[in-house]
Every structure is written in C-alpha cells, then in structure tokens.
Design a protein around this nucleic acid. Structure first.
Length: 193
DNA sequence: ATGACGATTTACT
DNA sequence: GTAAATCGTCATA
C-alpha cells in the first residue's frame, strides 16, 4: 500500500499501548500525514538520506518509526513502503479511548499551569507520544505482532478530509500538497483543517 | 569538534 | 497572534 492510501486507511484504527506495569492505553486515530520518501522534501528520507535516526523508515511496512525532535518531543510513524522504500505515515492525533487517566498522568509529568482536558491529551504528534509513553525505545517495533505497541481495527470515519501538512515550511513546493488526512468534524484534531 | 536545525508544544501579549 | 524552551542529530570541517 502506498503512503497516501495507508494514511487514509489508518483513520479509525486503534493504536494500542501496554506499559511495563500492564496498564493498557488506546486511542482511535483521527489525523495522519503521508511522507512520500526520497522525492518528498518534507520527509526525513528526502534525497535518500539514511542515518541512524531514520533507519526504521527503510524497514518493512508496519514497522514503527519513532523520532525525537525539538529537543523535547517524540513523534511516531507507521512505515508504509515496501522494504527499502523509506515511506511513512505520521500519526498526528488520536481520540483517547482506553486508559484516559493514565494518559493524563503521563502528560502531567512536566509541570504545567493549565488543567488538561481529555480532548487535549493526544491532540498533536508530540502530545500523543507523551500520553502513550512512546519514545525511541519503541523505534523499529513491529506494529503487527508487538506486545507493547500495535494497531487494531476500529470504526472508520464517515468522511475524510485532506489538507496541507503541518510544520514543514521549509519543504518548497511540497508544502501545499494535500497529504494530511483527518476525520471530518473530529474534536480531537491537532488543528482544524 | 562545532554549529544549525527541527514532521512541536506551551505560555504569554 | 508571537516567542521561548531544549537537545539529539547530522553535515561540515
């Protein structure tokens, strides 16, 4: 499956995480972005770049690519390409469905002034990783078969909306490509399309 | 060895 | 709306 097809197909699927202590967390995916590989200036694999950091992008489809950015946030992707094709789908937002209080606790580890509403727990790629305790230790995990982090079926959205990707102002003509996929009308999006 | 840069989030004006 | 926080990573030397 190509990255765009996977980005759309993942909407409605559940991301499930089991912590060391057995706590189970789950969120329904409502926002994704496709990164199209070597030709895509916004992708970490642009131009065939292959480093220790993005090595997982070159693994087989269904592998997790987790990276650390801005000195403080993690983001999780589902690898989409056939092996050797560094193509992936970034998970940008999920709707919390299991372990909400555990998620709130995880999101409150750093001091904060404002109270955390349920709808703000997993609304954004860095936030959802913090809420689900996803970091580089899960980079390379097989999302079909892992006991720590995996994908499960869920209710498909009634309507999908495409828009431009976020946070890639440096990507030239790729900035405006409609490679962001959202469930129409969801209250759990990182921002309204 | 060093410097510049983020697929972001938060708080503040 | 704008700006600061914060540091692993990588390209350059």
């Amino acid at each position: 499956m190509g990255a765009e097809a996977l980005a759309a197909a993942l909407l409605g699927s559940k991301l499930v995480r089991v912590l060391e202590d057995g706590t189970r967390l789950a969120g329904r995916i409502v926002e994704t972005e496709a990164y199209l590989g070597v030709k895509d200036r916004a992708a970490h694999s642009y131009g065939g770049r292959r480093t220790a950091r993005n090595e997982s992008m070159y693994a087989r489809a269904g592998t997790a690519y987790v990276y650390f950015t801005y000195g403080m946030h993690h983001c999780v992707n589902v690898v989409a390409g056939s092996e050797g094709q560094p193509v992936a789908v970034l998970l940008r937002a999920v709707e919390p469905v299991e372990g909400v209080e555990a998620m709130r606790e995880l999101r409150s580890r750093r001091p904060r002034r404002t109270a955390l509403r349920d709808r703000d727990l997993c609304r954004g790629p860095g936030r959802l990783c913090e809420a689900m305790s996803i970091d580089r230790s899960l980079d390379g995990e097989d999302l079909v078969g892992s006991e720590r982090l995996w994908l499960a079926r869920g209710e498909r959205p009634s309507e999908i909306r495409r828009s431009a990707r976020i946070g890639i102002a440096y990507a030239g003509e790729w900035v405006s490509r409609p490679l962001r996929f959202c469930e129409s009308g969801s209250r759990f999006l990182s921002r309204q399309p």
